[in-house]
Simulated assay, not measured.
Amino acid sequence: MKLSGKVILVTGASSGLGEQICYEAAKAGAIVVACARRIQLIGAVKERCMEYSNQPAFAFQLDVSQPQQVDHVLARIEEEVGAIDVLVNDAGYGIFDDFVATPYEEIRNMFEVNVLGLMYITKRVAIKMIERGDGQVINVASIAGKMATPKSSVYAATKFAVLGFSNALRLELKPFHVSVTTVNPGPMETPFFERADPDKRYLARVKPFLTDPTALAKKIVNSIGKPKREINQPLIMEIAAKAYVLFPRVGDYLASGIFNKK
């Protein structure tokens, strides 16, 4: 797929990985539709995308956990922009705390954003892609969805759900020439950790394992139009995640020891 003139919708586009995906897509000539809750930030993302692409770009305030808002924004995109060629589901958040100390309301909210919101917007967009017989869905999950560690029980559960959903969806949409790619990043120094790790102790401890969001965004954009099943970063955590499955006792040792930095 040549990106020039293709419409790419990115959720969670106001900062971090989502923001960088917008820029890399714009550099490749795509028409970027940036969506996030923080309208004051995505306006700046939109302007920068226009500078990179020399094409129109769009920004819509969107909370993916609100189905009516999703319907409204998608209708506006269809009317003002056109058909969505690529959907990048990056919206999500995490709280790192012991499960028994996590309020139920926080658990429910995390699932509504990370899982149910992702599934709802994907369904709405995938229906249109099936009708056209073309498109790509890119779901940003996490290495935490492959290898859970202490104090990430709820967040990991949401990402395990995204992985399971994506793996089944890939098979369901393949006959309609719609591809599904799952991205599993390790820790990145982004605003995600302002909420997940407010005292920044975790980030300091995992500094050797940090993934560069700009470099990962380039890999994601380069994968568009290709039947790429997964993108996993960094390599050491991908290897650890495989060991977690193949050698369960070793996996538990790694998850509770070397990779337990929270």
Rank of each mutant, 00 (worst) to 15 (best):
V140E: 00
A57R: 05
A156Y: 05
L171W: 00
K207F: 01
D199K: 06
S4Y: 09
A59C: 06
T181P: 08
S142I: 14
K2N: 15
R132Q: 06
D197K: 08
Y244I: 06
A255L: 09
A26V: 04
D90Y: 04
L169R: 00
V115K: 07
I130S: 02
G29S: 03
A34Y: 03
H177V: 04
G43E: 14
V115W: 01
A243K: 02
Y52N: 11
D252R: 13
I220H: 05
Y155H: 03
R132A: 10
V206I: 12
P198R: 10
K262F: 12
T149S: 15
A215Q: 13
K207I: 04
R48I: 12
E172S: 09
A144T: 13
H72Q: 15
I138G: 08
L41W: 09
A243P: 00
G186S: 06
F160L: 08
V245P: 01
F160D: 08
K146S: 15
A215L: 14
N184I: 12
F209E: 07
A26I: 07
A36M: 08
L246S: 12
K27G: 11
V178G: 07
E80T: 10
S223N: 08
I21A: 10
L41A: 13
Y202G: 09
T102P: 09
A148G: 14
S14Q: 08
G133Y: 00
P234F: 00
V178E: 04
D252S: 05
D197I: 11
G251S: 07
M50N: 00
P208Y: 00
T11G: 01
I39P: 02
G145N: 08
G251E: 02
V140A: 05
